[in-house]
């Protein structure tokens, strides 16, 4: 049943799994940040990623901006999208029933995906002449340069996010709001602003990840679905609301994905990811690093 690949293939696989894991981690961190703040899962997270990739693609196609240049643009646009989503939709369902909380963002996801298809057709698009392309040698094996760049950049962005949350005053205010909304309000924190900010930052995370992904991934209206599914299981595995948890879980999932593909069969790589996450979540419902 199990296919044992030669060691260099295995090293290669694990390395690219770790690299992809950092990208997953940043996407999941955005989701986890939002959940930690208000216990709402953003089911439109994948569609936010899709918007980020289209932003990057159109910046390239219309203004000849390289994806690396349009990272701040994509992050800014997505920050706005997240902020507006909170102000327009989420604010109204904060105290609502679970059903409304799930289906409000689910509806947004369907809407955004169909909207992208309506405006930009279902065609697969690609940034064809990016600055970074081709392979690079790392630790004796070769990996794609765009993947390596995306991975390092996402890790840096993740570090910046972690620094922001733990070391700056606004970040601490965010954390305080996440822990106890009433207490935070009594301390003079404008929790309403914190919630909107949380959505903005959470969406900006996929803004950054999406810009780098557009460097080596096709852009099409449904591109978010797969990444969103991975992000949900990543966050469930790492523990909802735990930012460090999403880094560890992201890397685990990146590696499992590759190993599942190598050891069982490429068709089953996501099955391996989902089964593993389900088993962990069933044994430990709060995830690896969850608080509750």
């Amino acid at each position: 049943m199990l296919i044992i690949p030669p060691p260099d293939v295995l090293v290669q696989g694990i390395l690219s799994g770790i690299l992809m894991g950092f990208v997953y981690a940043l996407i999941a961190a955005g989701l986890s940040l939002i959940f930690g703040l208000m216990e709402i899962v953003n089911f439109a997270h994948g569609e936010f990623l899709m918007l980020a990739m289209y932003t990057t693609f159109w910046a390239y196609a219309l203004f000849a901006l390289d994806p690396l240049v349009s990272v701040p643009l994509s992050a800014g646009v997505l920050f706005l999208v997240g902020w507006l989503t909170y102000r327009g939709i989420i604010r109204r369902i904060l105290g609502g029933p679970m059903l409304a909380q799930i289906f409000a963002t689910f509806g947004l996801a369907i809407f955004l995906r169909a909207g992208a298809q309506f405006l930009w057709t279902p065609d697969f698009r690609q940034v064809s002449r990016a600055w970074v392309q081709g392979p690079v040698r790392m630790l004796g094996v070769s990996v794609g340069l765009p993947q390596a760049v995306a991975s390092v950049a996402c890790l840096v962005a993740f570090g910046a996010l972690y620094w922001f949350i733990t070391r700056t005053e606004t970040g601490v205010a965010l954390e305080a709001t996440a822990q106890d909304r009433q207490a935070a309000e009594l301390m003079g924190i404008n929790t309403e602003r914190m919630f909107a900010l949380g959505w903005g930052i959470g969406a900006a995370c996929v803004g950054i990840a999406g810009a780098f992904l557009a460097n080596f991934f096709y852009v099409f209206p449904h591109v978010g679905s797969l990444f969103a599914l991975i992000a949900y299981v990543t966050v469930a595995l790492g523990g909802f609301g735990s930012i460090p948890g999403s880094l560890v879980a992201g890397v685990i999932i990146g590696v499992i994905e590759v190993l599942g593909g190598l050891l069982i069969a490429p068709a089953f790589k996501y099955v391996a990811v989902f089964v593993l996450s389900l088993v962990v979540v069933l044994l430990r419902p709060q995830g690896l690093f969850g608080k509750f």
Binding site: I89, L99, A100, F103, G107, I110, F111, A114, F118, P221
Partner: peptide
């Protein structure tokens, strides 16, 4: 591939969830 039905479905789903659970 215009997906107009899904566009309406999605909008309707969000509106119902937000304003008329």
């Amino acid at each position: 591939g215009r997906a107009v039905d899904l566009l309406i479905y999605g909008a309707l789903l969000t509106l119902v969830a937000v304003f008329q659970p």
